[in-house]
């Protein structure tokens, strides 16, 4: 059981985070359960082009679909007003995947969920959000593997 170090996380969170203890506690709860989500400080680019160093939870969440479990790659950005504002969530397709746009996903991979739209601390939290994501993605996966192009031409048999 990888012990997650709250102190290290608090150091990672830049000073601009207004509710660091709350934020760290939630991150620790989530990454000790979803082992493939890692806390990463990175520059987030806002729609107006401005950037800000924000904490993200990056990695995969396990989604069951048609009897198989897939590791769906996601990135959940925490604003510095977290938990009083919802995370900004994306699926992060690899080169072998393509985004399946729909009710919950736009062409940029941004995730839209009522849980995010109706976010309200403390009823809403990261753990609940990920559980909702896993259920929703289990019905409508946000990404699919690119079809591998089968070459119909059979190589010449010497």
């Amino acid at each position: 059981m990888a012990v997650v170090n709250e102190g290290a996380l608090k150091k990672m969170l830049s000073k601009q985070y207004k509710y660091r203890d709350l934020t760290v506690r939630e991150i620790v709860n989530v990454i000790s359960h979803y082992k493939d989500l890692k806390p990463v400080m990175d520059a987030y680019v806002f729609n107006d082009g401005s950037t800000r160093d924000l904490m993200s939870l990056t990695g995969t969440v396990p989604v069951s679909y048609r009897g198989n479990v897939y590791n769906i790659p996601v990135c959940l950005w925490l604003l510095d007003t977290y938990p009083y504002n919802p995370p900004i969530c994306f699926v992060k397709p690899t080169s072998t995947m393509m985004i399946k746009t729909g009710k919950h996903i736009d062409a940029n991979g941004k995730i839209y969920l009522p849980y995010l739209h109706e976010w309200k601390h403390p009823q809403s939290d990261l753990f609940g959000l990920i559980q909702v994501m896993i259920v929703v993605f289990g019905e409508e996966p946000p990404v699919f593997s690119r079809p591998t192009t089968q070459t119909p031409y059979q190589p010449f048999q010497p």
Partner: peptide, 14 residues
């Protein structure tokens, strides 16, 4: 080292 899960996605159902 825990290399972490390999990202995966359902095959495309054509």
């Amino acid at each position: 080292l825990n290399g972490g899960a390999v990202p995966s996605a359902p095959p495309t159902y054509t």
